[in-house]
Design a protein around this nucleic acid. Structure first.
Length: 323
DNA sequence: TAAGATAAGAGGGACAT
DNA sequence: ATGTCAGTCTTATCTTA
């Protein structure tokens, strides 16, 4: 028997020490969201950091520095535990086997393979988790989010939710659910782009998952969205704080039901930037927040009406208590 | 060139049948 | 389960400053 090994290399290369945008500030790594951010100006230096989780080495033999297989994981169809009989008819020293032994081994191989990955659910998991590891790389996700996705996907199979749905769409939905659960800021659009599944399909599967598996998804607050958009654009701390203030004031006016949190966040940020004189156009902000300029305009009109702001409200900056 | 206005259409939630 | 309806958001296009 020969163990299956999965080698993993992990290199986190950071070539610059200071932020390339402001020249000051340290790079702060946010493992959960998978971003490297400047501690001074909030600029997102890299959105796709590589996995910096533990590696698994052979500690049994002090001389042997070889990497060994990964720890057991939900994100492999056999949890990373399988062994297979290798296909070469050689013994441990590399000599060919006797013909009697060859016959025995080939019978053993057949029975070995029959015990593995031959239930339909196993085949499904195998394909799905292969896909999952690709998505992980493309989206720069953390190991814990991937494990969560695998857990949700397994549950979905157990509940027979895969019937009539493609593996890709169900997996994408599970991934989105895992991101939402772990508050990793990835949108359904992000997943659409890397998984070749239509947004509509993903959203449909996602709703089924949430309902049937009784997932407890934390409600994303517009305030969190502000931070995400602001980081992406490199908006100043001052504008960020003002945006939060505008949002809170608007929430108090009681008109936020049914409005998308991202839209509100983007608009609050836009208004805040107008106020502080930072130049970010509606187009900039729409691009960074996956909503459209029109939505920003509509929300901006609502907010201005509700809070009695006119175009030049920055003249009353002092009344916002942000300086 | 950015912002505003308008219209058409898609998709989802609430509700009734 | 299916249909309808009001409200939200997106896409596209044109106008205005």
């Amino acid at each position: 028997m020969v163990s299956k090994y999965h080698s993993r290399t992990k290199t986190v290369s950071i070539t610059q020490d200071s932020c390339m945008r402001c020249g000051r500030g340290k790079k702060v790594t946010d493992v959960q969201s998978g971003e490297i951010v400047c501690s001074n100006c909030g600029y997102v230096i890299s959105e796709r950091i590589e996995d910096s989780g533990p590696e698994h080495r052979n500690f049994m033999d002090g001389q042997d520095t070889s990497r060994t297989g990964a720890a057991t994981t939900l994100s492999r169809h056999d949890r990373g535990l399988a062994t297979i009989i290798d296909p070469y008819n050689k013994d441990a020293s590399g000599k060919p086997l006797s013909s009697a032994m060859k016959t025995t081994l080939s019978r053993l191989r057949i029975w070995d393979s029959r015990t593995q990955a031959h239930k339909s659910s196993d085949r499904n998991l195998k394909i799905a988790f292969n896909e999952l590891s690709k998505l992980k790389d493309k989206l720069g996700l953390s190991e814990s989010t991937i494990e969560k996705t695998a857990y949700i996907y397994r549950k979905a199979l157990e509940k027979r939710l895969a019937r009539g749905r493609s593996i890709q769409s169900l997996l994408g939905a599970a991934l989105f659910a895992a991101c939402r659960e772990s508050e990793t800021p990835r949108t359904i659009k992000d997943i659409e782009q890397v998984s070749n599944v239509r947004k509509k399909e993903l959203a449909k599967c996602y709703r089924v998952l949430v309902e049937k598996l009784d997932l407890k998804i934390p409600v994303i607050s517009a305030v969190q969205c502000i931070a995400r958009i602001a980081n992406q654009l490199g908006v100043s701390e001052k504008s960020k704080r003002l945006a939060v203030k505008i949002l809170k004031d608007y929430e108090e006016s009681g008109n936020i039901a049914g409005k998308s949190p991202t839209g509100l966040a983007a608009t609050a940020l836009y208004l805040a930037c107008v106020n502080t004189g930072e130049h970010f156009s509606q187009k900039n902000i729409a691009g960074a927040s996956t909503i459209t300029e029109v939505t920003i305009r509509n929300r901006a009109a609502d907010i201005r009406r509700a809070l009695n702001l006119d175009q030049k409200f920055y003249e009353r900056n002092h009344s916002w208590g942000v300086n």
